[in-house]
């Protein structure tokens, strides 16, 4: 089956991101497929490449990147949620003349249509929030 996973909680604020990541890994491990991970609300902070947790804590940002890189999971951050919270890729940083971009290139900035498409196209949609 194909899963869309919606992440609404920010890393290191609630457990939602950690739960969603464990779930995503289990989807892959059980032979199912991740159609899309959609980061919404504070979930967009998972794409922040500047996150620097202590070395003895799980690096959630890198954990998502690994999932995206090794398993080809599509990681999409909602553009409206992201811009509002200062999560910008190179293109958006240029467009809004901001001094830097902080969104990892493994994350795709896209619109809410990707959430709806994910919900419609996947066999199951599971939401993690706080």
């Amino acid at each position: 089956m194909r899963f869309t996973i919606v992440v609404q909680g920010g890393p290191y604020t609630s457990q939602a991101s950690l739960s969603a990541w464990h779930f995503a890994r289990a989807v892959v491990a059980t032979g199912h497929e991740i159609y899309r991970v959609f980061f919404y609300h504070d979930g967009v902070y998972n794409g922040n490449s500047l996150l620097t947790p202590p070395q003895d804590e799980t690096d959630l940002h890198m954990a998502w990147c690994t999932l995206g890189r090794d398993h080809g999971c599509e990681l999409v951050v909602c553009i409206a949620s992201a811009l509002r919270r200062g999560m910008l890729d190179d293109g958006e940083a240029r467009r809004y003349e901001k001094p830097l971009a902080n969104l990892n290139k493994l994350f795709i900035v896209s619109g809410l249509g990707q959430l709806i498409d994910g919900a419609i196209s996947a066999d199951r949609t599971v939401t993690f929030g706080n």
Binding site: M1, F3, H22, F23, R25, A26, V27, A29, T30, H32, D123, R124, T125, V126, T127, F128, G129, N130
Partner: peptide
């Protein structure tokens, strides 16, 4: 259950609803 069990349950039910 572990997370794999969670995934399995999702496949057995038609949809999911989050309460929180």
């Amino acid at each position: 259950i572990d997370y794999e069990g969670f995934v399995q349950l999702c496949t057995e039910q038609a949809s999911s609803k989050r309460w929180g």
